[in-house]
Simulated scan of single mutants.
Amino acid sequence: MAAHRKHRKTRRNPFSGPAARTAGSLALAGAATATAFNGTGHAEPTVTPAQIKARVDRLYEEAEAATESYNGARERTEAARESLDRLREEAARRTDRLNTTRNALGSIATAQYRAAGMDPGLRLALTSDPDEYLERASLAQRTAERQAANVAEAQRELAEIDRVRAEAGQRTAELKARQAELNRHKDTVRRKLSDAERLLGKLTAAERAAYDGGAAPQPADLPAATAPTVRAARAVAYAHGALGKPYVWGATGPGSYDCSGLTQAAWRAAGVSLPRTSYAQISAGQRVSRSDLAPGDLVFFYSGVSHVGLYIGGGRMIHAPRPGADVRIAPIDQMPFAGAARPA
């Protein structure tokens, strides 16, 4: 019995001691792994308002850059298409002229064929007016030579038009492919913007208002500023009339705008033609320093010159900010300043 009791004392509980601790650790690790794969048990990392602003700012900058690149590609595509249309019209006109020339040559050839049965010497002997015959023969020869030269020239022109038309078609196809690529990029940015809106939804109303820059001041709230020229005043007046209208990709008004579409439309109303994109508009006028800004000047932002607004004085501008936001008045120090230009 004592031996039996001794034997029972020496037995170890498989669920206690180091083995139990090891098994417990493995079980906890397995549970943690399973929890990770199941997507539960981990709270989403806390994101501060400053982090949200930085991430959303970057997304908006990418969206604006993609829009301006898209606008440029679309403009080049339209120009290529117009060029192709002109070439087609020119080819049609030249083909008509070529056909007319061929018909005339056909008539000459028919007349020559009908007269071919008679020897030229005999025709000369039988004619009542040899001088008239020789004059007509010389004229016919010159006409044939001129018509032949015209046909050869028309054929060369038509061949050149065909070559240019084919080249223009290839260029258009390339531009359309680039446009499709930009559209895919826009879709990516839109997804990012959706993420940004989700992040902005985590902010309180006060934090969101602070991010948006607070309430946009009305024109009456701004200090009076006089535009340097009549045209600049007209551009500023147009921009004021666009306040409250929505930002829309690629829009140039009058119901909606993107950033460069707004500035282009404002200066068009003043009789000045600006390029379509912000990175082209910065070179469309006289460059001015930030300290010399005057109402009507174009103000540009970000290192890629991907955003533009219209300066109205008092350190403020009118601009089309981003998707989901209307045309508004904002301080120019709201974004990284890249330069300014004064259209002529």
Rank of each mutant, 00 (worst) to 15 (best):
D195F: 02
A237E: 12
A227I: 09
R208I: 02
A210Y: 05
A233K: 08
A242E: 00
S194P: 00
G201K: 01
A227V: 11
A206G: 12
L193R: 05
H240V: 14
A196V: 01
G201C: 02
L222A: 10
L203C: 08
A209M: 06
S194L: 11
A205R: 07
A242I: 08
G244C: 08
P223Y: 13
A227R: 07
A242P: 05
P217M: 07
A233E: 07
L243R: 01
R190M: 09
A206N: 13
Q218H: 11
V230A: 14
H240S: 11
Q218P: 00
T204R: 02
L203Y: 02
L193K: 00
K192W: 08
P217L: 08
R198S: 09
A210M: 04
R234E: 14
P223D: 12
A242Y: 00
L203V: 07
R190Q: 13
D221M: 09
G213M: 07
R231V: 14
A225C: 09
V236H: 01
P223M: 14
A225I: 14
L222W: 14
L203W: 04
Q218S: 13
A233D: 06
D195L: 03
L193Q: 10
R191L: 13
A210Q: 09
V230M: 14
D195M: 03
A242S: 13
L222I: 07
A239Q: 02
R191D: 13
D195V: 08
Y211P: 00
D212V: 01
G213S: 12
Q218G: 15
A235G: 03
A232H: 09
A242C: 09
A196Y: 00
P223I: 10
A235C: 11
K192L: 10
A215C: 13
L203K: 02
P219D: 09
G244D: 03
A216F: 05
A205F: 12
Y211C: 01
R198A: 04
A237P: 00
K245D: 02
G214L: 03
A209Q: 11
A206Y: 02
R208G: 00
R190G: 01
K202Q: 10
R231H: 13
V230C: 03
V236Q: 07
K202F: 01
R234W: 04
A209R: 15
G214S: 10
V230D: 12
P219F: 15
P228V: 13
G214V: 04
G214Q: 03
A242H: 03
A216Y: 03
L243C: 06
P219T: 05
P223A: 13
L203I: 08
Y238A: 08
Y211V: 04
A196R: 00
D212H: 03
V236A: 12
L203S: 01
G214K: 02
A215P: 06
G244L: 11
G241D: 09
Y238Q: 10
H240E: 11
E207C: 06
L243T: 00
T226I: 15
H240I: 08
Y238P: 06
Q218A: 15
A205T: 15
V189K: 03
V230K: 15
G213V: 11
G201L: 03
A206Q: 15
P219E: 14
A220P: 04
K192T: 08
